[in-house]
Nucleic acid binder design. Structure first.
Lengths: 133, 133
DNA sequence: CTACAACCTCTAGCCACTAGAGGTTCAAGA
DNA sequence: TCTTGAACCTCTAGTGGCTAGAGGTTGTAG
């Protein structure tokens, strides 16, 4: 039961088949053992690792951060301050992105509200794009 | 005076030199006329177009949307409803991204707050990544 | 006239995949 | 046991919007 095909592993973990192969290719997953016919087979450890990666991706961590997180979690005796640090760093990044998008949204709303639906030659949107705000 | 080198055009418009070349390559800018020595020369129309593109990029429009906006603004007699539509569509997209990031941020904050800075084996962050929330 | 900054083209790389070609293997049903 | 065909394999190229670098040429200030 513990030796799944790549398709079965994909179903179990909600990670797509080509993505699993990609993760192996870039060394995020160890190369899976193959059958005589060269097909990959996955055990429980692989599923655990894949699930870890997917959860972390869902939270927006990039693959380098995930590499670090995996390395940290492989050392149970270590302090988890490093993991905490990575998470907080990520929060800061997300806050920046949110702030940026919120500002953008406000500008766009102003622009759209000024558009009188008239002719292109009077359009506030196009005018602003052409000559600045 | 109206024939600028690519570097001068870049300074005028705050668009980097390789980016200008890239825009020409993908047809977002018309191919600039060249000197005998094959160097690009830019006139006022090009600067206007580049400024338009940069302003739109700053507002987060992708290059396809910018293509549409440029096409619309080239027809002064047309209604600007299309431009308005593109802008509103973009706002909707941005709202989605903001909502996604805000939800993500909340999850991450919860996770980080649970981390007691103890050992990796007890870490809430790593635990959640491994086995889900 | 010389020096050198700025220009040229072309290719490859970034991130995290996704798509497709062209071929092989596995497993369920007859 | 055989046959199908879904699922697998490797490899390459493409996505967006640039950025970096190699290796060579041109324009211009002194």
């Amino acid at each position: 039961m513990s030796e799944l095909s790549i398709g079965a592993a994909a179903r179990e973990t909600n990670v797509k088949v080509p993505t699993i192969r990609y993760y192996e290719h870039i060394g995020l997953l160890p190369a899976a053992p193959r059958t005589e016919g060269k097909q990959r087979r996955y055990g429980l450890d692989d599923l655990t690792r894949l699930n870890f990666i997917r959860h972390a991706r869902d939270l927006g961590f990039d693959l380098d951060a995930i590499r670090e997180l995996l390395a940290i979690s492989a050392q149970p005796d270590r302090s988890c301050a490093d993991a905490d640090h990575i998470a907080r760093r990520h929060i800061v990044e997300i806050d920046k992105r949110i702030a940026h998008l919120v500002a953008l949204r406000a500008d766009l709303q102003t622009l759209a509200d000024q558009c009188g639906q008239g002719q292109v030659s009077d359009c506030a949107i196009l005018e602003t794009l052409a000559h600045g705000s």
